[in-house]
């Protein structure tokens, strides 16, 4: 069997398994390494607890401080919009919830499709804006690496192919859906080995920061 349906069955079957295995191995290997290496022992007497400030900082650092917002309002607003949009499309689109239910057994209520559709369109536009800004802003352009562009491309492809598949803008549909699933699989494979790992490490890093400040009795 060949053609679009053969491609779809391949990405839904063997390829999904491969991507999931690489993702699980890579992500856990990196997290275990980070946890086992730990931090240098601090022999100073703690001035306050670690856990409270650590957990608080996990949340407080999510919102940019006024100084950062003043210096880079575009980064803050557009960054927020597309991250939230991506999460809504990923976690609250009903076919995606069915996928989580099928693989993890966990499920939750979703949003009506037109809402997810609108959010996806906004996400696509803001993602494009981030690329334009990255290319246009002299400092951003200088500090951007190949990995940054690679990560942007895969995230954009996942959202774009999803949008094309939902609106059935690519015929036949099994090809459109297959391309979307394959993009998501490539993202899963890349996730542990690129800066996409921040999906899991960002909050851990914030906890470390907050805990370190807390121990010293400093506000963070």
């Amino acid at each position: 069997m060949s053609g679009a349906m053969g491609f779809l069955l391949w990405v839904k079957g063997p390829m999904f398994n491969i991507a999931l295995a690489i993702f699980a191995i890579g992500l856990i290997a990196r997290l275990v390494e980070i946890f086992l290496l730990g931090r240098a022992p601090n022999y100073a007497e703690p001035r306050a607890g670690e856990w409270g400030p650590g957990l608080r900082t996990m949340l407080s650092r999510t919102i940019a401080d006024p100084g950062t917002f003043k210096r880079a309002p575009f980064n803050v607003v557009v960054g927020w919009v597309w991250h939230i949009g991506f999460l809504i499309a990923l976690l609250l689109f009903i076919p995606h919830i069915e996928l989580f239910k099928g693989v993890l057994g966990l499920y939750w209520p979703g949003l009506p499709n037109p809402v997810v559709d609108l959010v996806t369109a906004v996400t696509l536009i803001t993602l494009l804006a981030t690329l334009v800004h990255r290319l246009w802003h002299p400092v951003k352009r200088r500090i951007s690496t190949t990995e940054d562009y690679l990560v942007w491309t895969i995230v954009f492809m996942v959202v774009l192919t999803g949008y094309l598949a939902y609106h059935r803008l690519v015929e036949p549909y099994p090809l459109a859906l297959g391309m979307h699933i394959l993009s998501a699989e490539l993202m899963l494979i890349m996730l542990p080995f690129t800066k996409l790992t921040h999906i899991f490490t960002a909050f851990i890093a914030r906890w470390y920061n907050g805990a370190a400040f807390g121990r010293k009795g400093v506000q963070s």
Partner: peptide, 22 residues
């Protein structure tokens, strides 16, 4: 949208291998 023949077993086994590797 549900993958074919994929269960949480893949994730758990992958995680176990990853833990050892890490």
């Amino acid at each position: 949208s549900v993958p074919i023949g994929v269960t949480s077993k893949t994730l758990i086994e992958g995680a176990a291998v990853g833990a050892v590797a890490g």
